[in-house]
Amino acid sequence: MTTSPATSGTAIDTLVTVDDVSLSFGSVRALVDVSLHLKRGEITALVGDNGAGKSTLVRCISGIHRPDAGTISLDGREVHFRNPEEAREAGIETVHQNLALVEDLTVWQNLFLNRELVHRFGPFALLDRRGMQRKAQEMVAGLAVNVPAVKSRVRRLSGGQRQAVAICRAAGFSSKLVIMDEPTAALGVQETARVEELILRLRDEGHAVLLISHNFAQVMRLSNHVWVMRAGRCVGGRRTAETTGEEIVALITGAKSA
């Protein structure tokens, strides 16, 4: 493998590049010229205070919001997602902060939501319920978290079980990038540990992961790279191995500038 030094490191490993992205909600400038990139096979962490714009940036990448300015590239190509469907089709799956599971539907229905398997009969298509239930069982069986029968409604699941189902859904469907917005914020210690195992396994299976977290220990434990946001701006990035929790905190609060 001989690559020219100019392209190695960026063009080849880089999966997503966010370039000068800005977005305002009325007078609130939620994102201001944000630029960052994340690599294949890595867990990239995104940290920052409440209201720094992390979730908004995630929503831009996953097709819920469209930036006012700037570009997002996937695999070196500019993408302009008009809705979450297009982002999912491109291989970007998101576990949203508010979980994004439908409580009144069952586990298998949630796992296959808008990705339902069907039997075709001419112009008609009926759900392949058996097939989905079987595959859902397989998807869930590999989880470190013990999820009850796939036929049970999500309403009956604990926080950790729900998070596991949401991650399971994001990991399926051959996604290139799995975005997780504070996946352990609402979980207990043991559940957090289990979900962290899941996150590491995602990376080992070759998914790129964008992890938003308030938990510095977790970020230092899991991530390969850290980006820091403050007041709508991306104020710096570090390789996790080359930084410390103190430095990250200083960047977040603005005590230190990049």
């Binding site: 996953s62 809705n83 979450p84 949203h96 979980l99 439908v102 009144d104 939501l113």
Partner: peptide, 15 residues
């Protein structure tokens, strides 16, 4: 049913 259950969750899956 997904739209009625949680329109936010439905939207996030691309519905």
């Amino acid at each position: 049913l997904a739209t009625g259950g949680s329109s936010e969750a439905a939207t996030a899956t691309g519905i």
